[in-house]
């Protein structure tokens, strides 16, 4: 009844406002909206000014036709062959690169994540490591690959080490969120039972983190796999290198078979990763 009374008093006060007064009180939102639209228009105009459509290249239509005919008539020998230059082998190599890159990245990310979590580390250290993580994320993976090639030489190994480093950025960012969302009340109850710090970590912290860590890792595997297909362009192994070579030398039927291989690979992995992650989320 208390609340009812309060509402009545409030109504009595407010009822002095007439409908017309209320109408005139309308917040001037349209000014904000026009502002946003104008800003967007200016941005688009400014960026459009420099992107010139210079028309097709002399061979543009030929390339387009070639790619379409390549996709419709892929090189079946290449698609089903078993040698080291054929599609199945390259796909397996791409998967191998992504698997290793993700696993190493996920392991390397753990110390980074704990060092950058604000609820565990003192703030200055946390911010320092956040800056490092951000830097790792900003450098494009292709640039990382180009630098690592100097160390490992061209080949699949370069792809692995590149992906391990690149994955740290995103994975540790998501780990940090999981760590900062930890439910600390569980630790209190473990304390009350007289657990040692190690026992608290084993039974209070790890069970909370494992599911989200695994989910993050699988998600990153999905991304790494797509990334691994492009790393080949700079010579870091996988299917990308062969695809680009064929594109540049215009062997369309080979291009077609590589594109088919790529599509099947990514579709399967994406489907599997979504299934596994939704299963993890349900427990």
């Amino acid at each position: 009844m208390e609340k009812n009374k309060f509402e009545k008093v409030e109504q009595a006060v407010e009822s002095k406002l007439t409908v017309l007064e209320m109408y005139q009180r309308a917040p001037k939102r349209w000014l904000l909206y026009t502002g946003i639209v104008l800003l967007l228009a200016v941005l688009v105009g400014w960026s459009g000014s420099d992107v010139n459509f210079t028309g097709l290249t002399a061979t543009g239509t030929e390339v387009a036709k070639g790619i379409i005919s390549g996709i419709t008539h892929p090189d079946m020998g290449l698609m089903l062959g078993t040698s080291a230059t054929d599609v199945p082998y390259l796909i397996l190599q791409t998967i191998a690169i992504a698997v290793l890159g993700t696993v190493f990245g996920a392991i390397l990310a753990i110390p980074f994540a704990f060092l950058a979590a604000e609820n565990i580390m003192p703030k200055p250290i946390a911010y320092l490591f956040r800056a490092v993580i951000l830097m790792i994320r900003t450098i494009p993976s292709l640039v990382w690959a180009l630098m690592w090639i100097r160390v490992t030489g061209p080949g699949a190994a370069c792809g692995v080490i590149t992906q391990s480093v690149c994955s740290i950025g995103m994975i540790s960012k998501m780990y940090i969120t999981a760590i900062e969302d930890l439910d600390t009340r569980i630790l209190e109850s473990l304390d009350a039972m007289g657990c040692t710090p190690f026992q608290k970590i084993r039974y209070g912290v790890i069970p909370q983190l494992v599911a989200s860590f695994i989910s993050t890792t699988i998600y990153r595997f999905d991304i790494n796999l797509k990334d691994a297909t492009t790393l080949g362009i700079v010579g870091a192994g996988g299917i990308g290198a062969s695809l680009v070579q064929c594109l540049n030398s215009r062997r369309w039927s080979m291009v077609g078979s590589f594109i088919w291989g790529l599509m099947v690979l990514v579709l399967i992995i994406e489907y599997a990763s979504t299934r596994i992650r939704s299963k993890l989320a349900r427990g």
Partner: peptide, 10 residues
């Protein structure tokens, strides 16, 4: 106004 929540209009 008929349902008494004119003040909440915005």
């Amino acid at each position: 106004d008929k349902v008494g929540i004119l003040d909440k209009a915005y």
